[in-house]
Nucleic acid binder design. Structure first.
Length: 388
RNA sequence: GGAUGGGUGCCGGAGUGGUUAAUCGGAGCAGACUGUAAAUCUGCCGCUCGGAAGGGCUGCGGGGGUUCGAAUCCCUCCCCAUCCA
């Protein structure tokens, strides 16, 4: 059985329909993977994810290595057993933490020295170690250890991280021993078209089971990100799965599929849910708003998720205003279910050769946050948190 | 009746002569969040005109006074808490 089967390509776009075959089962694509870095999709049980329909989730090598440690997870029967999720799991190598915890690490060609955010202890990550630890976790798909540069990286840094990522990719493949576990390589290249192309060519020359596009959606404007995608996916082999890392805003999933992406993962639906924002066909809406205090109807009448079937907007509003934990759970269920419904609709549209019509319709209705506001507030968040 | 301590913006609570439309919490009103150090962060939060910059008005229990200037000092009245009769 092939690791990836391409079933169909849309006639009017690059959208694809396919299936990823893993030892834990099949994953139909396009697919969205909720993120459970610490072996838990925050606030949700595996049963709830199953009820929604989720086919694959993402866990994090770095976080689990620090606690409870990869070895402990291994001794407890592996990640699936440990967290009681028996469908496919993809693990991030820790490459993203090279970016997100950049102030706690130093990097050279050999690897990355992290100062643990938990207790300050030092840990040296190498590509070999990143692969070995993911083998201990027993994920179905392991990611290569990459160097993620910030979106503002200049040409020099983007080139360096690209070269380092290629070097590390080769070492990852060489270190990999578990045949039943797939490994995906990652394309970097910053915000430079030619570097993206070069990275794609270098990485796809290696015998990975699938290919990821990394280093996007890190604060650059959306058009930029879409542009970079367009410079990358044409250089990826059609017979391997393509994974856009860390992307999961509804509009970006649609845009990504249109540009030939099969797999997405993102913390957005669950994080945003914990802060009271719910996805709707018209865009994200804050359930805390005063307008919902007395709304006895379902928050989203178009939604058939557990939350919308059983609770009023007024009740959700109350839970959030009262800081009740159930609010975060119900909102998370809704947001993950919303994305899953989006994925199902996308698949259906591709099947019927109607993807571009669907995409135009969806994007026409879905209100996206103003770019300037996004960037401004993101900056403020970073500033506030760097103080600590 | 007496003693003591108090009365500050929606609430709690700083502030004891100018830099105070008034620190800081909470509540309230909005917004952000993209391979999770995120149940986090940001802005607004007396009234009013303005898109904004900025302007006007009112304001620290009530009234009166001192002062160039008062939430802050003085007088007086009202109210609250505790204690004593």
């Amino acid at each position: 059985m092939q690791n990836f089967e391409l079933w169909k390509t849309d006639v009017n776009s690059q959208a694809r329909l396919g299936v990823i075959n893993t030892t834990s089962g099949a994953v139909h694509t396009p697919v969205f993977c909720p993120v459970g870095s610490l072996a838990t999709v925050k606030t949700l049980t595996p049963d709830e994810l199953n009820d929604i329909g989720c086919e694959m989730i993402l866990a994090n090598n770095y976080h689990l290595y620090l606690r409870p440690t990869s070895q402990v997870v291994h001794e407890l029967g592996g990640l699936h057993n440990f967290m009681n999720w028996h469908k496919p799991i993809i693990t991030d190598s820790g490459g993203f933490q090279v970016f997100s915890l950049s102030h706690l690490r130093t990097i050279n060609d050999e690897g990355v020295n992290f100062k643990s955010h938990i207790d300050g202890s030092n840990h040296f990550f190498t590509p070999e170690k990143a692969i070995h630890m993911q083998e201990l976790l027993g994920s179905d798909i392991a990611m290569a250890f990459d160097h993620v540069p910030p979106s503002c990286a200049d040409r020099e840094l983007a080139t360096k991280s690209l070269e380092r990522t290629t070097l590390w990719a080769e070492r990852c493949l060489k270190a990999h021993t578990r045949k039943e576990q797939q490994v995906y390589g990652i394309v970097q290249g910053g915000m430079f078209s030619d570097l993206r192309r070069r990275a794609a060519q270098e990485i796809t020359a290696l015998s990975f089971d699938g290919f990821a596009v990394g280093g996007l959606s890190l604060g650059e404007p959306k058009e930029r990100m879409y542009g970079m995608l367009e410079e990358t996916t044409p250089f990826l082999p059609p017979d391997k799965a393509r994974y856009l890392m860390g992307v999961g805003a509804p509009e970006d999933i649609v845009a990504g599929v249109a540009r030939g992406i099969d797999v997405f993962d993102c913390v957005l639906p669950t994080r945003v849910a914990r802060n009271g924002a719910l996805f709707t066909d018209e865009g994200r809406k804050n359930i805390r708003r005063a307008q919902y205090i007395k709304m006895d109807d379902s928050f989203d009448p178009n939604c058939d998720c557990y939350t919308c079937r059983n609770f009023s907007a007024a009740y959700l509003n109350h839970l959030f205003r009262s800081d009740e934990l159930l609010g975060m759970r119900l909102a998370s269920i809704h947001n993950v279910a919303f994305l899953w419904r989006l994925i199902k609709n996308i698949r259906l549209a591709i099947t019927r050769d109607r993807f571009t019509i669907f995409a135009t319709d969806f994007l026409g209705r879905y209100q996206v946050t103003n770019e300037d506001k996004r960037l401004e507030q993101k900056e403020q968040w970073l500033k506030a948190n760097n103080r600590k």
